[in-house]
Structures are given as C-alpha cells and as structure tokens.
Nucleic acid binder design. Structure first.
Lengths: 233, 233
DNA sequence: CCGGTTTGTTGATTCCGGTCAAATAGTGGT
DNA sequence: ACCACTATTTGACCGGAATCAACAAACCGG
C-alpha cells in the first residue's frame, strides 16, 4: 500500500460525495486526504478494522466481501472507478468497516479522513442530502440483493444479473463481464460450477453467446423470460 | 385505514428521526402529519407506491416484505413500536416504497409528509446526522442479512437469530418470539417446516426449551456453538 | 514468450431444504 | 365459550445446487 500521485481538485469534484462541498469545506476534507495505490490482491482493509477513512476509487477495481467460517466468500459489491465506498461507516457509533476490501486489479484510491469529512458536512446541507441520497440508493440495492437471494434460485439470479448488466450498459450487442466468472459467482452467491452451467444453459437456449468474458445477447426477450423463470420455451 | 388520536409532541420527540428537530422544524414536519390506524392484515402501502410519507410506529406491529412471482414472501423487517420506517425513500430520485407493508397486529402510526420533513432537515444538521446514522445502521443490518443468506445454511440462520434475540433482550431466562413462527420463517428465508425442525433439533440437543411462542435458553453455550455450526456435540 | 498458477468447464454424486400431505394445536372474532 | 380458520408439527419424498474430481483454457509475471 503505497502513497502516490496526488489527485487534482477537479478530479475529486467528480465524486458526488465531494461535489456538493464549497471551497473551504473541500479543502478541509482534503487536508488530510491520502492518495493510495494498491496492487492486485492487496488488502485495503479488513472487516472490523477501525474505519478512519472513506474511499474514492480513481482507477482499478476492488471487491467488498464477507467470509464465512468455512472460507466461502460473498461479494457485497465490486467497486469500479468513480465510486466512493465505506461512507456508511461515517455515522456509525462504532466506526469499523463492515466488510473486507481487496483489489482485483492494481488500483489508485483517495482516502479521506472521516472526521474531516464529517466536519465539512456539518455546514453543508446540500452535501448532506447528496450523501443521504447515496446511502438510500445503496440501501435499496441491498434490499434488492436480499430479495434476490431469498426468492430466486441460482439460474434466475444469473439471468437477472446478465439482464441488469445488459440494460445498465445501454443494451449493446456485446459486453464484457465486469470481473472474472469466479467473482461474478461470488457476487451472485453461487458456486463457479453453477454459474458455468447456467451460462451454458442460456447459450443452449439461444438467449446469448459467450466468448470468454464477452457476452453477446442474441435474444433479449428470451433472456428476460429466463430471468422470470419461464425457461420452458 | 383510519385517522385517529393525534400524538403529542412529547411522544413524537422520542423518535430519533424527530428528536433532533428544533421547535419550528418539528412544527413544520408535523403540520401535515397524520395519525393513522390500521387493522390486523391491512396494507399500509405496497411496493412501488409513491412514498409521500415516512412512518412512525406508535403501537402494534407491521411487516415489511417482498413477494416472489410465485407468491413466496421474504420479510425484510418486522416493525415494532418506537421505530420509524421508509426513511430511505426521502432522498431517492423516484420516491417509491421499496417493499410492501402490512399490519401484523392492529397498529397506530404517524405518517409524516416527506416534503415537510426534508424541508425541516434542511436547516438542522444534527437531525441530518441522526438520519444518516439511522440509515447507516440499517445498511449494516442489511449487509448482515445478505451475509447470513449467502453464507449460512438454514439451521445456522435459525440459531443465529435466536442468539441475537436472546442477547438483544439482555439474556433473560425466557423470552417470547416477536412474531408467529410463520413470520419468523419469512424473516429467515426458510419454510415454516424447516424452522420447526431446526427448533426441534435445538431442543433435542438441550440448547433450549420451547412452549408455543416462548423460548427458554437452557444452554447458551450450546446455542452459540450451533450458530457457529459445531452442532456435533 | 515461457512456465506455473489461477480460472473455467463438465460429469458424477450427495444432501440440504423445499414440497406435499395429514394430523393437531392455537387463535381471533362474535 | 364456540367455531372457523390459521399456525405448527411431523413424515415421506424429491430436486436443485453444492461438492468432488479431472481436465482444459487463460492469464500473469518475469
């Protein structure tokens, strides 16, 4: 974990978390900010560690995850550039990270001191509201995840995930999975073998084609039906 | 759904959501507040309904839940008196309820107009911070739920739930389940039959005794081990 | 571009937990 | 207190997804 290239103010303004702050507030929040680089596989923090900073991802990719006693891993989120994370620790009575964080690719981050950020937020209701918005959105995402885990079987979860990604990217012919299939499996709470079989089934059903990490949606309608469970046809 | 007894200011101040507001802010938030009563089984709102109000539970009990296409129900939370809910809709771009809400018992609520509340929060950073704290806490709870669904099998979830309840109430000899076993099952994403079998197994292992909705923890240590998966002994 | 390691696929097998069924106990409402 | 309805328990059975195994493919660091 190495300190590195300082980010510019303009670059940081692009993060919703900071965009609402006025000049002095931003300066205060950045006063003790640190640019940090991590290598692939390196741990940024562990579940239970004191959360002294919240983070912005500038480059690279990281995973947030929990581990079972048996070593199974459930990925809570995959972090891509432009996203902030760990904000929800700011206002907890015990300020600790609720998950592990490891880089999937070499990554560059900015870590902002939690106390500084809270100070800056105190006289900036707009920034507060923006943060409330971010947390609310995350919360709804979590509710969706819970529903998906509780009410949908493995194949439905896979189909749903693909459909979401497909739509999120504007329904392109072909798109690239955001991470290795192993990690996608961890995100969907499925074994890699099961993910592989689900994808094969969708391919055989003519819904999509697959080349390594690239997915081509051949029949969006059929994929949609698969996500609803009518894989009959 | 009937309007009824107006709550007193003092009563409402006990809700963290409102306790931080100053006098005029509180007045504003309450100006268009409505006291509402619902009967057992009555729906307060449905998933996708416009979320014009956020809610405080004064008396009774409600469930927040999602439904699968097949009609399976996953309970996201059981709401008891003293709790507010639906706050996370306040700051969403599309202000809609993310879950269904039905009363499990006859209940009395206060519904606070979302716009009024947002206005009140605008000039009250303390209240904002308190809300941020509430949302953060809920978020961490959701992450715990996700982990539990993804990484623990049915018996572990049951043991874990019982242990949590036992501790949350201060480890009393005996406590009463907060809802029917059917609903607890819905909360744990397990079939009622499976919950029943889990409880029977814990009873047979000598960890607890059970009389209808009353649970007596006979061997907290053993319950703890069951929650970790060492039910061997 | 080479070699070792990680990732992905496919098949065989196992078993957890869901489903169906049926009997019993409990509960709310009148 | 009574009655109809709902909740709970138990047993039998089944199926989906995990696990184990073996191989193929892809990737990364040097």
């Amino acid at each position: 974990m190495n300190d590195r290239r300082e980010p510019t103010i303009e670059e940081l303004r692009r993060f919703p978390l900071l965009s609402g702050l006025d000049e002095p507030g931003l300066a205060r929040a950045l006063s003790r900010a640190r640019a940090v680089s991590v290598e692939r596989g390196e741990t940024l923090f562990r579940h239970g560690d004191p959360a002294r900073r919240i983070w912005l991802c500038r480059k690279g990719q990281l995973k947030l995850y929990r581990l079972s006693d048996a070593g199974q891993e459930k990925i809570i989120a995959i972090i891509n550039p432009g996203r902030s994370f760990a904000e929800a620790t700011l206002f907890m009575p015990r300020r600790v990270y609720p998950v592990h964080c490891v880089a999937l690719k070499p990554s560059e981050l900015v870590g902002i001191d939690a106390d500084d950020l809270v100070d800056s937020l105190r006289d900036d209701p707009d920034a507060c509201f923006r943060l409330l918005g971010t947390l609310s959105m995350r919360m709804h995402e979590k509710i969706d995840q819970i529903e998906s885990l509780a009410l949908q079987n493995a194949h439905l979860r896979v189909a749903h995930y693909l459909l979401d990604e497909f739509r999120k990217r504007g329904e392109p012919e072909t798109f690239r999975l955001e991470a290795s299939k192993k990690h996608i499996a961890g995100l969907l709470a499925v074994q890699p073998e099961t993910l592989s079989r689900s994808l094969t089934a969708l391919k055989r059903a003519g819904a999509l084609d697959m080349d390594a990490r690239f997915i081509t949606v051949l029949d969006a309608d059929r994929l949609e039906r698969a996500a609803r469970g009518d894989l009959a046809a």
